[in-house]
Write a protein that binds this DNA or RNA. Structure first.
Lengths: 175, 175
DNA sequence: GTCTATATACAGATAGAC
DNA sequence: GTCTATCTGTATATAGAC
């Protein structure tokens, strides 16, 4: 049985990816997991605290997964392929990227959140750069930022068009 | 002297690009242009009407500009360069793409808006495809969706990092 | 076309009981 | 850790006067 704090984070993550961080309330969270609105404040004093916790949790999770992939998957292009499929899965669930969503909502969020978002994308980009270096690309840094940009943009379009495959179709040829 | 309706649209466009469409209220609009909140409803009965008007106006404007560019700028790669610089300008003003923003906020918007957004991006992509065809690209359709995706994604990252040049640096090599 | 006044709903947040 | 009760602020929207 998962504890309440984790339940809140899981649900908030899902709601942010679909409706945006400003698109749900503490009451939405409370009703869904069966507590009262005030109780959510016990776990996350302010909604800003919740935002920071969401980004930090995802950054740590993704970095752990990325580190594991470097030993469990031998071929770097297969690792990148897995990343593409992960984003396509978001589109299939009518979700956008959590941090992409918050990056769009940037100016309604605090500096703490924007710092966390920057850390997230920097870590992401550095990992991608290492993969493209391993694949022997001339300019791995440029390749990484192009890949990351196209990934975020294609997910935005795929979700709008209700065509998840737009992600993998767009990312073809980035390997 | 611009009329009130145009003033509302101009301000709403700016606010949507910075704070998101759900990030401002009729009262914000009213105070800035010097009328009362209720008066905004006279011009746009519901906020949903305002959303549709914003997207439709921008689609018509951009399509007009694109059509003009095809006669005023001889080199298709110079036309594409102009598009990149237009997006970089957004980043310099701490703005995201209006329709990209609304695409992120998709599930808090009506079907009317999502239909308009789809029309906008389809027209955009078709125009880009024509440019890449004129440049003799093998797969102009793929090139266009990759370009559009990378453009949206790089703007999202450039704005987050407060580095407008990320847009043009990322879009290098897409010509 | 803009105003005042108002209806209704919901947001984030806190105090204090259990 | 969750509750009830409440505060305060703000949102979209409408009716009817000017």
């Amino acid at each position: 049985m998962t504890d309440t704090k984790t339940k809140i984070l899981d649900l908030a993550e899902c709601l942010t990816q679909t409706n945006g961080f400003n698109g749900f309330s503490y009451l939405d969270i409370a009703e869904e997991i069966g507590i009262k609105g005030a109780s959510v404040h016990y776990h996350f004093k302010s909604k800003d605290d919740l935002a920071v916790a969401l980004v930090e949790r995802l950054r740590e999770l993704h970095m752990t997964i990325f580190r594991q992939m470097e030993t469990s998957i031998a071929d770097p292009s297969k690792r990148i392929e897995a990343v593409i499929m992960h984003f396509q899965q978001y589109a299939e669930e009518d979700k956008f990227c959590l941090c992409g969503m918050m990056a769009a909502e940037l100016y309604s969020l605090s500096e703490r959140v924007s710092n966390s978002l920057n850390k997230y994308f920097n870590d992401y980009q550095n990992w991608l750069t290492r993969q493209f270096e391993a694949l022997g690309h001339e300019n791995a840094t440029l390749q990484a930022i192009q890949f990351l940009s196209a990934l975020e943009g294609s997910l935005l379009l795929a979700r709008l068009r209700k065509s998840p495959k737009v992600v993998s179709e767009t990312m073809v040829g980035f390997l």
